[in-house]
Computed example of a mutant assay.
Amino acid sequence: MANHPAAPLLLRQGDREKLQSLVRSTAVRAGLAQRARIVLLAAEGISNTEIAEKVGTTRNTVIAWRARYTEAGIKGLADADRSGRPRQIDHRAIVAASLRPPPKKLGVTHWSSRLLGSRLGIDHTTVAQAWREYGVAPWREGTFKFSTDPQLVAKVVDVVGLYLAPPENAVVLCVDEKSQIQALERTSPSLPMQPGKPAARTHDYIRHGTSTLFAALEIATGHVTAACKPRHRRQEFLAFLKQIARTYPDQQLHLVMDNYATHKTPEVKAWLAENARFRVHFTPTSASWLNLVEVWFSIVERQALHRAEVASVQELNAKIRAFVTGWNDRCHPFVRTKTSTEILRKANRPTTSKTGH
Rank of each mutant, 00 (worst) to 15 (best):
R277N: 14
G209Y: 07
P249N: 11
K18Y: 03
R233M: 11
R12E: 06
Y134E: 06
V175A: 13
A96N: 03
V23A: 01
I51W: 03
R279K: 13
V127T: 08
L272T: 07
P230R: 04
R201A: 14
V256R: 03
A270C: 11
A220T: 03
A80H: 13
R207E: 09
Y163M: 09
D158M: 02
L9D: 08
F297C: 02
Q34K: 15
R87M: 13
F334P: 06
R87F: 01
G107D: 06
Y248D: 02
T187L: 14
Y260C: 09
R119V: 02
Q180F: 10
V310G: 06
Y205L: 08
V175Y: 11
R201F: 11
L213Y: 03
Y134S: 09
A154C: 02
P102H: 07
S112C: 01
H232E: 04
L9F: 10
Q303D: 13
T221I: 03
T143M: 05
T143N: 10
T26L: 13
K269W: 00
T283D: 09
W111M: 01
L241D: 01
F297L: 02
W327L: 10
T225C: 15
P150K: 05
V171R: 12
K264Q: 14
V175E: 11
I206M: 05
P333R: 09
A80N: 12
A273W: 08
L32K: 01
T148E: 15
R231E: 12
N348F: 05
G135L: 11
E294C: 04
I244D: 01
Q251F: 00
A227P: 04
N259Y: 05
P86T: 05
S298Y: 00
H110T: 07
A6Y: 05
K242L: 04
R330D: 14
K264R: 13
S118T: 12
R16P: 06
V55H: 03
M257Y: 01
C174K: 08
Y134C: 05
K346T: 15
Q151Y: 05
F237I: 08
R68W: 03
E274H: 08
H91M: 10
I46N: 00
A30R: 12
G209C: 02
E315F: 04
T285E: 02
V313I: 11
T325Q: 15
P8F: 08
Y260F: 12
A273E: 15
A67K: 15
R321M: 14
P195A: 01
A311M: 06
T126V: 11
T352H: 13
F334H: 14
L292A: 09
A43F: 04
R114K: 14
S298G: 13
R92E: 11
G14C: 04
P192Q: 04
A347M: 15
P5E: 07
R59N: 10
G222L: 08
E50G: 02
Y205E: 07
L152A: 09
A72F: 06
K338Q: 14
R35C: 11
P167C: 05
T352L: 15
R349P: 00
V108Q: 12
A318T: 10
E309Q: 14
A304H: 08
V224G: 13
S298R: 10
I94K: 06
A67F: 07
S83F: 10
Q151S: 10
A154V: 10
M193S: 09
E53I: 01
M257R: 09
T247Q: 14
L77M: 07
